[in-house]
Design a protein around this nucleic acid. Structure first.
Length: 614
DNA sequence: GATGCAACTTAGAAGTACCGAT
DNA sequence: ATCGGTACTTCTAAGTTGCATC
């Protein structure tokens, strides 16, 4: 075990194994490997993570008390820009008569005006929620007067904002540069913190500005006012011995605390759901990177025992206990279909969406026979973010029979797994494998699918663009498995047409190049101009390659119309699989990961060689 | 077990930057 | 230099998980 730990440490940072166990020496020697990262941060204390994962002897060294850091210093959040009142020529009118709104009421009105050409301002719930909250911000005179949203005219406001955004677009280069410089200054001042010995990038250092809440899907709270966060609402977390962030002049923070059991720097409670919002570190940070690495190591552990688990849940399909059968069928879905766990949700608080454990009878249809297949389960439900999950899956007979049993004497709106919830399921999983929870299956199945698809689809003889197409297809297989969908881009049809036009033009060009080549061949017999012939041949090859590249691009784009690759790439695919694949086929990593992604996955880029196996 | 809260990961949309074609 | 469209970044909502409390 120890050897393994040391080997990883050594591969990662080229340090002598003898240094590995000595924490005092850790940072000084790890510092020397900084350059290999190519950007200014220290690598993770890899040794300790490996220890957590592989060898508990070293865990005590730092993590047994659950602390996440020793020193934390930051400048606090950037508050939302204060409200800028409308110029007096921009008027709001009610019932055909223009009226000047009080500052508070005006601000909320502008939120609505800004969204006017968005579809959801036409929705009844949105309007009702907005109007209700807006009236709370009005003076009593305004409230007495403004009683019907239909009589409100926000058009001048909307026009004003449109004009403003046009003006912004039309700004001179210098002005744009000025804004850019200001943003950069803000980033430099507030966008970083010191955590232990590292300067780390903060993910979201700005307080969310006020506005109208827009949940996803059919959200009962859409249109409600998301109120402005004041310093008095904000809790600061930093270490005692750090320079504490200063609240804006004349204000106070709600609290300054020093809790090193958590990773957040700033928090506040949001008024729509009453949930807590946090400012945390960027994915490139040590603390996020370690966690990410750990996540994939847990998934790899699952790989080692997944067959045992599958055998187990298949046995459990036969259990005398209903609870166990339900658990086993749910687990089968989670494993086979990569469904989410599915916590219960409070009705009326958010959109009606479900995951595995919260599936209702109405979400599945059983077909003893469908399209020539036996025992087909037809899923149709809204999952996270109200994305529809629709799938027809042939299942084993025993699963099918169990489902029939679970559905007996139930109404469509009853829970399919009435004896099960995520807590029960996860407790069971924890007993089967250390660190196992429902979501590990998603990570595991996503990563293993990528690895296996890459193996299957990569053709050694193909050129770079074709290999990248294969990668994207493997990625796509995962996105489909995880049901990562997106709305087809608004410009999709046009962009497809443009590409097709390019392809047609390229085809013409190729035909011409071929004609030229033929001519050169004929010429050869007349005068011995080998050079001319060679150059024509080259030209044909070049154009052929360009054409092929375009065609590959078209295929890729077409197949990707409604599929979002980003989410799986960022959250489910062990980056070491991709890194190894790139190394194996000599693909520059930039073709797979952009700058941000390379920063997030620096640990993997550094540690995986072409032999890496998930 | 049920419930509620806190902390953290995962998610698609919207906004913005950037790059190649004209 | 400008325009149009794609690629990347930002935003913040919506999940999962674990723990405390009854």
């Amino acid at each position: 075990m120890c050897q393994l730990v040391c080997r990883i440490g050594a591969v990662l940072f080229s340090i002598k194994p003898s240094f590995v166990a000595r924490s005092s020496a850790r940072y000084s020697c790890l510092n020397t490997s900084l350059s290999s990262y190519g950007f200014e941060r220290q690598p993770f204390p890899s040794v300790l993570i490996c220890c957590t994962l592989l060898d508990y002897r070293w865990e005590e060294e730092r993590y047994t008390d659950g602390s996440k850091w020793r020193f934390l210093e930051h400048k606090g959040p950037v508050m939302a820009a204060p409200y800028e009142p409308l110029p007096s020529n921009v008027r709001f009118s009610y019932d055909g008569k223009s009226m000047k709104l009080s500052l508070g009421a005006e601000e909320v009105a502008t939120f609505f005006a800004k969204m006017l050409d968005h579809e959801y301002t036409t929705k009844e719930i949105f309007q009702k929620n907005f109007f209700n909250d807006w009236r709370k911000e009005m003076t009593s005179e305004e409230r007495a007067k403004i009683t019907d949203l239909k009589k409100c005219n926000f058009n001048e406001m909307a026009e004003y904002f449109k004009a403003q955004s046009e003006a912004r677009k039309a700004m001179t280069k210098e002005d744009k540069l000025k804004i850019k410089a200001e943003n950069e200054r803000l980033l430099q001042e507030y966008g970083f913190c010191i955590m232990d010995n590292h300067k780390e990038r903060i993910a979201n250092f700005r307080i969310e500005p006020p506005g109208l809440f827009r949940g996803r899907g059919d959200h009962p709270k859409m249109g409600m006012l998301k109120r402005r966060i004041r310093p008095e609402d904000i809790i600061i977390n930093c270490s005692k011995d750090s320079k504490h962030p200063k609240p804006p002049p004349g204000t106070k923070w709600k609290e300054v605390r020093h809790d090193n059991k958590v990773t957040w720097l700033v928090s506040w409670t949001e008024n729509i759901q009453g949930s807590i919002k946090y400012i945390m570190l960027n994915p490139s940070s040590r603390i996020k990177g370690e966690k990410d690495w750990q996540k994939y190591e847990t998934a790899r552990n699952l790989k080692k025992c997944v067959e045992r688990l599958r055998h187990q849940y298949r046995e459990d399909w036969k259990s005398k206990e209903m609870k166990i059968r339900q658990r086993a069928v749910a687990l089968y879905f989670i494993d086979k279909l990569a469904l989410r766990a599915g916590n219960e949700k409070e009705e009326g608080e958010s959109a009606d969406t479900v995951g595995c454990c919260s599936l209702r009878v109405e979400h599945i249809n059983l077909h003893a026979e469908k399209d020539g297949q036996e025992f087909v389960v037809e899923f149709d439900f809204l999952g996270k973010d109200s994305i529809r999950y629709y799938n027809k899956v042939p299942v084993e007979k025993r699963v099918f029979k169990n489902l029939q049993l679970f559905m007996e004497n139930k109404q469509p709106e009853d829970d399919l797994f009435d004896r099960l919830n995520t807590s029960i399921l996860n407790k069971h999983l924890q007993e089967l494998m250390d660190g196992l929870t429902a979501k590990v299956f998603r990570t595991y199945n996503a990563s293993i699918t990528l690895q296996q698809q890459l193996k299957e689809l990569t053709n050694p003889d193909e050129n770079l663009p074709a290999k990248i197409l294969s990668y994207n297809r493997a990625n796509r297989a995962v996105a489909i498995l995880c049901n990562h969908q997106r709305a087809a881009p608004k410009t999709f049809e046009k962009s497809m047409q443009n590409l097709q036009a390019k392809i047609d033009a390229k085809k013409d060009q190729l035909a011409e190049a071929k004609r030229d080549l033929k001519g050169a061949k004929a010429d050869l017999k007349v005068r011995r101009d080998e050079k001319a012939l060679e150059s024509k041949k080259k030209a044909v090859e070049r154009v052929e390659e360009q054409l092929m590249k375009l065609e590959v691009q078209a295929t890729d784009r077409e197949e990707n119309k409604q599929i979002a690759l980003g989410t799986s790439k960022l959250n489910y695919l062990d980056p070491r699989i991709s890194v190894a694949w790139c190394k194996k086929w000599g693909i520059p990593i930039e073709k797979i990961y952009n700058k941000t992604q390379r920063e997030k996955f620096a640990w993997a880029i550094d540690m995986a060689d072409e032999d890496f196996e998930f």
